[in-house]
Amino acid sequence: MLTRALIVVLAILNLGVATWWLLRDEPARAPLPPHPTGVAELRWLPGGTDAAVAAQASAAAPTEALVEREAAPATAVAAAPAPAPAIPPASSKPAEPVAAIAKPALEPVAEKPAAPAATPRCLALGPFADRAAATAAQGRAGTLLSQVRLREQPAASGSARYRVLLPAAANRDDAQATVKRIVAAGLSDYYIISQGEETNAIALGQYRNREGAERRMAAVQAAGFQPRLVASGDAGQWWLEGQLAAAAEPAQAQQRSGAAQQRSLECTRLR
């Protein structure tokens, strides 16, 4: 019984809704905005494919007209000369100075360290029998040695002997003639050597120290003769000392000077 009542109520409600729908007034449509000139109007047409084709055909005409109307102004605009750019009025404010571009400070170039000077080398050349021989060796060494000095190494035992001699004459008669000249000059202590390698040489004295021998030589030279000093026994030896040139070698200096030996020497001893 209840089910039937619900069905009847629903049927009455459906009937009422259908009657309201059929009898209601259509809502007023809002007015469309004014259509702009030259713009194609979009319209909805009922129908299928034929309606779409008809809509495209109707829209083509206004579009072509719009293109024709807009082409003329565009051409006119292109033909018209472009207006000259407006020159801005001169400003009364003074122009701001352009900031100077700061140049980066140049870094000082590091100087290359100077090459270290070569360590000086000094040496002693010898031994030589007398000062004259050492002096001659110095002349032969030439520029290979600098700061040269002659040094006598005294005999250790004290048995040295120094003789003052005149060169050997050609024969005995010449030697006796030289003796007469010596006597006339006021010199004494002389004799003619009669044998050995110094035959006919004239000895003018023998001394145990060099100083005495050199004093005798000075006196003989003052008389007009040219004696020589000869060392014997454990006589002292003469050495040639100096600083070696930078590009020279000790063996080269020894060979040129004619020395029998060469020894290393501290350069401070030359000062």
Rank of each mutant, 00 (worst) to 15 (best):
R163E: 07
R163H: 06
V164E: 06
V164N: 03
L166E: 01
L166W: 07
L166V: 07
L166Y: 05
L166S: 07
L166P: 04
L166M: 08
L166C: 07
L166Q: 06
P167C: 00
P167T: 04
P167Y: 11
A168Y: 04
A168L: 06
A169L: 10
A169K: 04
A169P: 00
A170P: 01
A170C: 02
A170H: 08
N171T: 07
N171G: 13
R172G: 12
R172V: 05
R172D: 14
D173A: 15
D173L: 14
D174A: 15
D174F: 11
A175V: 08
A175S: 15
Q176K: 15
A177Y: 14
A177E: 14
A177N: 15
A177P: 06
T178P: 10
T178L: 14
T178M: 14
T178H: 12
V179W: 11
K180G: 14
K180R: 15
K180C: 06
K180P: 02
K180S: 15
R181W: 00
R181C: 09
R181F: 00
R181H: 01
I182A: 12
V183T: 10
V183Y: 02
V183M: 11
V183L: 13
V183K: 13
A184H: 02
A184E: 12
A184Q: 13
A185H: 06
A185N: 01
A185R: 05
A185D: 08
G186W: 04
G186P: 04
L187D: 00
L187M: 07
S188G: 00
S188M: 08
S188F: 02
S188R: 03
S188V: 10
Y190I: 03
Y190H: 14
Y191P: 06
I192T: 11
I193V: 10
I193C: 00
I193R: 11
I193K: 02
S194E: 14
S194P: 05
S194G: 14
S194D: 11
Q195D: 05
Q195S: 13
Q195I: 04
Q195G: 08
Q195N: 10
G196M: 01
G196R: 02
G196Y: 00
G196L: 06
E197R: 11
E197I: 01
E198N: 06
E198F: 07
E198P: 09
E198C: 07
E198K: 06
E198R: 09
T199A: 12
T199V: 10
T199Q: 15
T199G: 10
T199I: 12
A201V: 01
A201I: 09
A201N: 08
A201K: 09
A201R: 06
I202V: 12
I202H: 06
I202F: 00
I202A: 09
A203R: 10
A203F: 04
L204E: 02
G205F: 04
Q206F: 00
Q206A: 13
Q206G: 10
Q206P: 04
Y207M: 10
R208E: 08
R208T: 01
R208V: 03
R208A: 05
N209E: 12
N209H: 11
N209D: 15
N209M: 02
N209Y: 03
R210I: 13
R210F: 01
R210A: 11
G212W: 12
G212E: 13
G212Y: 06
G212N: 09
